[in-house]
């Protein structure tokens, strides 16, 4: 199995002189191609820092992060933005769509930033919208859409460039339970049918139960790992709840 992401001994320290906080304390793990991995942990456990380091928005103090065998910690800032738009897709909690652009334009933007030929843009956006069931909202502006539709548009924007890795930060955080479920099923479909690789940070066990594997983080270290295997989603959900109980009361 091809390894998309390899994190090795990653450390991230904040502050300096006297008051150093270790947000990440030597964490290592791998993610395979076509895998859907959840990252869980309490607030302050370091999961957001981890996501920021992998997404090259924040730089690690030490250790390495290989994405398709490229160590992103060694890239210069000029190369980073190029790397981000070609290799990574982002899905944020509050959608982060541009409210002056239509759904179509929001999705197309990811392609134009990646310097895809203008001739191919329309066709690729339409094809992606078809797959995610948002073809009918393409001409609407974000304010005219429901939360679920917005997040599906954001998902389309994240995967339309065919990135190596999709990074999702609490993607269901602002959605009602019905829309959450629809989105998470959409993620499963992305993994199964489009061979996307997803790394999703969440504190919600329900969202996490859709993943293939969960990494639990505590104090900047890998606490434990849970693989779904042949379990039903419900059974996996119960296992997640058990680990969270061990992790501590306010583990989520």
């Amino acid at each position: 199995m091809q390894k998309i992401l390899q994190v090795r001994d990653l450390e991230k320290m904040y502050g300096g002189r006297g008051s150093v906080t270790k947000a990440l304390n030597g964490i290592s793990f791998d993610v395979d191609k076509g895998e859907y991995v959840g990252v869980m942990g309490a607030s302050g456990s370091g999961k957001t820092t981890l996501l920021n380091c992998i997404s090259t928005i924040d730089d690690a103090t030490s250790g390495s992060i290989y994405i398709e065998n490229v160590d992103v910690t060694t890239l210069r800032s000029g190369q980073l933005s190029d790397f981000r738009c070609r290799k990574l897709g982002f899905i944020f909690q509050d959608y982060n769509l541009l409210d002056t652009l239509t759904a179509f334009e929001n999705i197309a933007l990811a392609l134009t930033i990646a310097k895809v030929s203008p001739r191919d843009v329309t066709q690729r956006v339409s094809a992606m919208a078809e797959k995610l069931g948002i073809a009918d909202v393409l001409n609407k502006y974000p304010v005219q859409m429901s939360g679920g539709q917005r997040q599906r548009v954001a998902s389309a924007r994240a995967i339309v460039t065919d990135p190596a890795l999709v990074l999702a930060d609490e993607p269901t955080g602002a959605l009602d339970s019905k829309s959450s479920q629809a989105l998470l099923e959409g993620f499963r479909a992305m993994v199964k049918e489009l061979q996307s690789t997803i790394l999703m940070v969440t504190h919600d066990p329900f969202s996490a139960s859709y993943a293939d594997r969960i990494l639990f983080i505590r104090d900047g270290k890998l606490f434990t790992e849970l693989v779904r295997g042949e379990d039903s989603r419900k059974a996996f959900f119960d296992k997640i709840m058990e680990v969270m109980a061990v992790l501590g009361g306010e583990a989520a």
Binding site: T100, T112, T122
Partner: peptide, 14 residues
């Protein structure tokens, strides 16, 4: 389209 779908032109124009 050749202009509109280039870089940030779409964003800038909007």
């Amino acid at each position: 389209k050749g202009v509109y779908f280039k870089g940030l032109n779409m964003f800038t124009l909007k």
